[in-house]
């Protein structure tokens, strides 16, 4: 389904379905560039809501990190995805799907660093 959503976005609107760029673009408003971003985010929320309602609220969302780690992690994810021009959807999926060298390198870096971070947090500290 995620693959179909990404393909449909390109076929209809000619856009990369990268969440960090879609949300980040809302923070630096340009006229005529806002409606589709808001609509995509609303769709994302409705999709998740529809699933949760369909299964009767039985969707586990377990955040294990401490409050401090949550805030640190949020800041890092927000800053990092904008600095690196993309996240799991934009680089990992859309960029990799069109064999962009930048995206493949970015994806290798964030997957690698994330795995090392989990390793350190779970098995070392």
């Amino acid at each position: 389904m995620i693959g179909f959503a990404v393909a449909l976005m390109m076929l209809l609107n000619g856009r990369i379905a990268g969440i960090s760029s879609i949300v980040g673009g809302l923070l630096t408003p340009k006229s005529g560039d806002m409606a589709w971003r808001v609509a995509f985010v609303v769709g994302l929320l409705l999709g998740a809501l529809a699933f949760i309602l369909a299964v009767g609220g039985q969707t586990p969302v377990d955040v294990l990190a401490s409050p401090l780690a949550i805030l640190m992690g949020g800041l890092l994810v927000g800053f990092g995805t904008r600095m690196g021009s993309g996240c799991t959807s934009g680089h990992g999926l859309c960029g990799t799907a069109r064999f962009s060298r930048r995206s493949i390198v970015a994806t290798a870096v964030f997957f690698g660093v994330a795995m090392v971070t989990v390793f350190l947090a779970r098995h070392v500290f």
């Binding site: 780690a69 640190m72 992690g73 800041l75 990092g80 995805t81 964030f110 660093v113």
Partner: peptide
Amino acid sequence: FGMGWGLV
């Protein structure tokens, strides 16, 4: 980004 992703 990877650091934050791994953290949370």
